[in-house]
């Protein structure tokens, strides 16, 4: 079976219902849609195990922070790849920063382990069920999650680096 955006989306919606699979777009040739925290684990398991789809390679995942979106401040992006069909797929889950809990994918993909630790380290996303959720690249006693947008790159209290001409 040739995988196209239409028939993959059709199959997923048939399985999980229209209320759980929303906002399908195609920004760069890779179909991107949103789902919710209740569905994501089942969905990735289904994509991996389905005999027709075989979307069974977790290419990457990363957190994204949108401070302006109320109750959708954090986003987790999963990008999957079917090596059999050479078909890529991107899934996003938005959730509030006050409750940054996501289900872990470590039981489905071994590679999710460090990727989730990275997302925890930089965005403070907690993965329920992760076997060893500690910081990975930053020091252990760091008290904040540095990729969140409220932390500017440079120390804003410094006065020796003011550049009034170009604003940076």
């Amino acid at each position: 079976m040739e995988l196209t955006n239409e028939n993959v989306l059709g199959k997923i919606i048939e399985q999980f219902g229209e209320e759980n699979i929303t906002d399908a777009v195609n920004p760069d040739g890779i179909m991107t849609f949103q789902t919710n925290r209740q569905t994501i684990h089942e969905l990735i398991k289904y994509l991996r195990d389905d005999k027709e789809l075989q979307i069974s390679f977790l290419t990457t995942m990363c957190g994204i922070h949108y401070p302006e979106q109320k109750d959708k401040e954090l986003c987790m992006m999963y990008q999957l790849h079917s090596l059999r069909h050479n078909y890529r797929l991107r899934i996003k889950v938005y959730f509030p920063i006050s409750d940054p809990v996501m289900p872990t994918m470590t039981d489905l993909y071994a590679t999710a382990n460090w990727m989730e630790r990275e997302a925890y380290d930089f965005f403070g996303i907690v993965f329920a069920g992760h076997p060893n959720l500690i910081r990975i690249l930053n020091v252990e006693d760091m008290e904040y999650h540095p990729m969140l947008k409220q932390y500017p790159l440079e120390d804003q209290t410094r006065e020796d680096k003011v550049n009034t001409f170009f604003g940076r």
């Binding site: 290419t59 994204i64 590679t111 460090w114 990275e118």
Partner: peptide, 26 residues
């Protein structure tokens, strides 16, 4: 891999590198 989200500004809103070493060293 390079995953870029642009919000229309002069810098990327988010740039994520898929670094093969990071992924397979585990």
């Amino acid at each position: 891999g390079f995953y870029i989200i642009s919000d229309g500004g002069r810098t990327p809103y988010r740039l994520h590198f898929r670094r093969p070493c990071f992924i397979y060293y585990q």
